[in-house]
């Protein structure tokens, strides 16, 4: 039983996260506080939303490099539209528009991948430059700091305002976290409880087998990339609300961080395997790592080295295990025959 538990990537990631937290906490006790929990949740939200989409694509055997461009496009264009309409109502409308723009852009990926059979990495590499370049040249490339009122109100929203250590400082939770948890449930439901979800896993396991079993692989592909676009739109909007600006140069280039979190969480880069829980743990680990290395006295100049090493070890352990397992299988087969 325990042995089987140790074979689960999720379990190992959870152990690593707990171990890392304990070490950080021992070196710097201020780590164990409500403020850390709130901060981690807040800074994990955007990466988390992106990670959900990235996980779905990777489970299906593909890879998406364009979601950051889609996210920033959705955010920027939505903000511009709102300013042009002088709309100052609720942020909900902004979310709806951003999600719609994201879905439309995701459909471009879906079209290229399903109709022309382009390799997913190349198609999304192309759409990344296409979307970012289109926005920067044809729309605008100015920072927007003067964001619409609804967005500003949302940005300043606070829940559970709590005193920190008796001083005047207060900590609070941002409601944006709720959006993330709602999406987690939606993605979990799609993957585990619907035929489309089963199809996504089947597609990643073997396209051929999925087709012969009767899955509509084309339809599933269209759904995957449109849905990833949808998530990217929401993620982009949340990113903008947190930063309280619309910076057209942000996000693009950080897609590898998200992919790293997803893969650390046990999603197989070859497709067919991956869970929501694993991805959440991967995001948690990466977020704690990024936020807390400074707490344990690692100078910021060397933080990237530590992250690189953890990334290599994190991907290396499961890879080495499956490599030796394969070798063992070969030996067993040879002995039998």
């Amino acid at each position: 039983m325990i042995k089987r538990l140790f074979k689960k990537t999720e379990f190992i990631v959870a152990l690593t996260t707990i171990g890392l937290s304990l070490i950080i906490g021992m070196i710097n006790p201020t780590f164990f506080s409500l403020a850390t929990v709130f901060d981690t949740l807040r800074s994990g939200t955007v990466v988390g939303i992106f990670a959900l989409g990235t996980m779905i694509v990777i489970i299906s055997g593909g890879i998406d490099l364009s979601f950051t461009a889609i996210a920033i496009f959705s955010l920027y264009v939505t903000t511009k539209l709102m300013l042009a309409w002088q709309y100052s109502g609720s942020v909900v409308l902004m979310y709806i528009i951003a999600a719609a723009i994201g879905t439309l852009l995701g459909l471009i990926n879906a079209w290229l991948i399903s109709s022309f059979k382009l390799p997913t990495m190349i198609a999304t590499l192309g759409t990344q430059s296409l979307i970012q370049g289109f926005m920067l040249f044809f729309i605008d490339s100015q920072y927007i700091r003067n964001i619409p009122d609804g967005m500003d109100k949302f940005a300043k929203a606070q829940w559970f305002v709590t005193d920190v250590g008796g001083g005047p400082a207060k900590t609070s939770l941002h409601p944006g976290v709720l959006i993330f948890f709602a999406l987690v449930i939606v993605v979990w439901f799609i993957l585990k409880r619907t035929m489309i979800g089963r199809g996504i896993y089947a597609l990643g396991g073997s396209r051929e087998a999925a087709e012969r079993t009767g899955f509509d692989t084309k339809g599933i592909t269209v759904f995957i990339y449109a849905f990833v676009g949808f998530l990217a739109g929401i993620g982009g909007m949340t990113f903008g609300a947190y930063a309280r600006e619309a910076n057209p140069f942000a996000l693009v280039g950080t897609e590898m961080d998200v992919i790293a979190a997803v893969v650390l969480g046990g999603t197989a880069i070859t497709g067919g395997r991956g869970t929501v829980i694993g991805t959440l743990l991967g995001v948690l680990l990466v977020t704690i790592m990024k936020n807390s290395l400074i707490l344990i006295g690692i100078p910021s100049a060397w933080q990237k080295v530590v992250i690189g090493i953890i990334l290599i070890i994190g991907t290396g352990i499961p890879a080495y295990r499956s490599l030796t397992a394969k070798k063992q299988l070969n030996v067993d087969l040879a002995e039998q025959s």
């Binding site: 590898m256 992919i259 790293a260 690189g308 990334l311 290599i312 991907t315």
Partner: peptide, 9 residues
């Protein structure tokens, strides 16, 4: 991807 982070780090 990991070594990219490591080397630039």
């Amino acid at each position: 991807l990991g070594t990219m982070t490591l080397f630039s780090g």
